[in-house]
Design a protein around this nucleic acid. Structure first.
Lengths: 132, 132
DNA sequence: GTGGCAACGATAATGATTGTCAAAAACGCA
DNA sequence: TGCGTTTTTGACAATCATTATCGTTGCCAC
């Protein structure tokens, strides 16, 4: 019943997922990542991949994006809070920071008395390459 | 063969869905709306509700929200482009406009050469009532 | 009235995510 | 280092919103 028992253990599978994310560029779905691990010969269950990704996301170590009509995509990205500019065609992604937006969201929420504020923001467009 | 052949027909079901949305407050899922129509004795298929909602959303007549981990929610709301501040607990929703955010998003996208820009933004928090 | 064609709708299919639970692995401690 | 406890794992089943199918219905133009 102690509160110190919330130990997170180091397991082979957790390391594998984390390592894979470290080398990957761009966003990938849980199923994607699972398939890649399999190809490498890592023996990891799909369930575990989901759990690990969720854990990492909760811990803020990875970023989750939910494109319209698709599965969740995960990516290791820079520490601070930021958003994504995603190409609608090829998926190319740029990280963008918008301090003004953050403060605006907080301000608006506070005005209405909302507490514990968070937000999601994605920008979609067609990247220069795909425009042609 | 005229270009006017993209006729949208007036059907009982389409009217029913549209009318229901007109009287409802707040966001509701497709399944919700379908159940309500059923209770009223309107005979409408679930498939049709989905199709109709999609059509209305494409036409910009209703608004779609995709809360994390849940189903799509639909709502008839004001014409212009706006965003939502949603209570994480009770779902109470406030429409908010953020002209600064719109222009910021457009500007950022343009800087990176992205065209045909759109974006999604939702703010989540705990409303005053639920905080207590 | 009638014919063409879009809309409907019951049902099945899809597919990502989550729940289950026994077996395996990791960590703390002696 | 060895052992018990507790977390974690993973194969499989379940869930559940959404989409596809396809024969039938009914709107609308003529």
């Amino acid at each position: 019943m102690s509160e110190s028992s919330a130990a997170v253990r180091n397991t082979r599978q957790r390391s594998a997922v984390s390592a894979l994310l470290g080398e990957m560029e761009g966003f990938h779905s849980a199923q994607d990542l699972h398939a890649m691990l399999r190809q490498r010969g890592e023996r990891v269950g799909l369930t575990t991949v989901y759990r690990t990704l969720q854990g990492l996301a909760d811990a803020g170590e990875i970023d989750v994006m939910r494109p319209p009509g698709g599965e969740h995509l995960y990516r290791r990205c820079s520490e601070g809070h930021h958003h994504h500019l995603v190409c609608r065609v090829c998926g190319r992604t740029v990280e963008v920071a918008g301090p003004a937006v953050e403060s605006w969201a907080d301000r608006v929420a506070a005005q209405h008395g909302y507490a514990d504020v968070s937000h999601t923001l994605e920008i979609f467009g067609t990247c220069p390459t795909c425009v042609r």
